[in-house]
């Protein structure tokens, strides 16, 4: 006579054997693997969305590259040159001022006289011959400008 505990125990699988047919078992496992592969692949509805997203991204990148090329070819807008202080316009004046100052420091007014003659003798460009006082005044102005 079986008790209810025996029934419970025997129904808990120990004696209830089930043998598995290998052929169909293999087929079912193959089917499950196939189902797994299908469920693991990305959803088809998402593909067009991602493709369009990639296309729009590529378009944006292309536009940015074109803009960058155009900008680099034309170059960036150059800043306006800062107003510089008035410079000595002619080379004769520059040469005269510098050389006369040097001569005055080295040999006084005589050296300035000598330099004056050499300078105008070398260029021979100016028909008008300024006096020594004019030259000294000009020289002072130049020195003041240089110090500024």
């Amino acid at each position: 006579m079986r008790s209810e505990q025996d029934i419970e125990r025997s129904f808990k699988q120990a004696n209830l054997q089930v043998t598995i047919g290998a052929e169909r078992d293999g087929r079912i496992l193959d089917e499950l693997v196939e189902v797994q592969c299908k469920s693991a692949s990305p959803h088809p509805a998402l593909r067009p969305a991602s493709r369009s997203w990639a296309l729009s991204l590529a378009a944006v990148v292309a536009v940015v590259i074109v803009i960058a090329l155009l900008v680099s070819r034309n170059g960036p807008p150059e800043p306006e040159p800062a107003p510089s202080r008035p410079q000595i316009v002619s080379r004769i004046e520059l040469a005269t001022a510098i050389s006369l100052e040097k001569a005055f420091r080295q040999g006084g007014i005589e050296a300035v006289e000598k330099q004056y003659k050499e300078t105008f003798g070398a260029f021979r460009a100016d028909a008008k011959t300024p006096s020594v006082d004019e030259l000294l005044t000009h020289l002072e102005n130049e020195i003041t400008d240089l110090k500024r």
Binding site: S10, N15, Q17, I20, G21
Partner: peptide, 8 residues
Amino acid sequence: WAICSEEL
């Protein structure tokens, strides 16, 4: 697929 034992 499943071949049951006599007990089952």
